[in-house]
Design a protein around this nucleic acid. Structure first.
Lengths: 199, 199
DNA sequence: TCGGAGATTGCGGATTTCCACAATAGTAAG
DNA sequence: CTTACTATTGTGGAAATCCGCAATCTCCGA
């Protein structure tokens, strides 16, 4: 899925001019006339960033933003507003918005910020991908294997783990070996690194 | 060092009224009439947060903020301004300011934000403390010990490490044992966790 | 009811780790 | 020059890990 700038604004003139601006700079842009229409189109695989007007009919920009956040949307959001005030901008940024710009704004300035947002999403997506593969592997572990893994990561010796779980050392060894295999690592250290880096 | 709100504003009336407000709510407050005077008083052990006026004679609020950041100041900064605009607020927050409020502002609102900033600093300070102890320990390691540690964390066996460093296995064992001792852990796993969590 | 997956355990051997005891060398500080 | 620290290596044994081969036992879905 290639990156797009998802522009959400109920003002057709704005949609047209910004779409054109971005496209002319080589940025794919899809425009939506309402928060609702974007919400229907959104899914977790969309990549890029969101350009979101603050004031719209029906659902407002901030409302959509909150809803998207709840649904796990990680796309950087750049708020657009023609009548913004400081508290509104502060609130948006403190809530995790990527940026907040006033309309009308300098074309180059806006494009620059959109590009920054796209880069951020790119990075986040890369990280998320590796995190997902780790989680997928964690998902293949059986209950016992996970229990053993936790104790292994706690730095306990097999004999201690065996004692904790009330099973034989040999069983622990088997689980340990199997879980390392499933996680795609050869030693417990590598496992610790793999999980440590992602949390 | 107990927490203080460091108020920096060249308007005496503001200093007096905000100091009084904060003190009356049980928050220690120290006021400075200029960026320069605070800069002279600042040191890394100060705890709390900073209330910083944007426009001042000589050095401005944002200038002081940047300087403090360069010097490693981690105190949350709440910008105060009587004539703020949106771009200024956005810029401040994107540069890492904790908050941005307009004067005059609601007393309770400001106090709430100051308290949030103080809590944040408290948390950061706690984390920094443990990170410092880890770094201090890392500092006691000799060059060789650090080399061995890196390879151990890479999940390599002692024999491989010995080969890599062109020394005997026995020497690796000694270094390994010594570094684990110095780092205050009993196993390489614990070491990996200790370092993994702090990066 | 049959088959597969997961949990469990034992045996025995190859590898590795962990350590105490001991010794040699180079280097920097005092 | 003496002391302290670091780096280095050896011997030898105790403890732990790693693994292949084998065998039960339970639970669950076909």
């Amino acid at each position: 899925m290639s990156q797009h700038a998802y522009l959400i604004d109920d003002d057709e003139a704005i949609r047209d001019s910004l779409s054109w601006l971005l496209q002319s700079r080589g940025i794919n842009c899809l425009a939506y006339a309402s928060a609702e229409s974007f919400l229907k189109a959104w899914n977790a695989s969309l990549a890029g960033c969101i350009l979101l007007d603050i004031r719209m009919h029906e659902m407002s920009g901030p409302e959509l933003f909150e809803l998207l956040c709840q649904r796990g949307c990680k796309l950087p959001v750049i708020f657009l507003t023609g009548h913004g005030d400081v508290p509104m901008a502060v609130s948006a940024l403190k809530n995790g918005a990527f940026d907040f710009v006033e309309k009308p704004c300098n074309d180059n300035e806006l494009v620059t910020r959109v590009i920054e947002a796209l880069k951020l999403d790119e990075r986040q997506r890369t990280e998320a991908t590796s995190a997902d593969s780790v989680n997928a592997r964690l998902g293949t572990l059986t209950t016992r294997e996970r229990q053993v893994m936790d104790l292994v990561l706690a730095g306990k010796l097999n004999k201690v783990i065996a004692d904790d779980l009330q099973i034989s050392m040999r069983t622990v060894e088997v689980h340990r070996s199997n879980l390392l295999e499933k996680m795609g690592v050869r030693t417990a250290i590598e496992l610790a690194q793999m999980l440590g880096a992602k949390r």
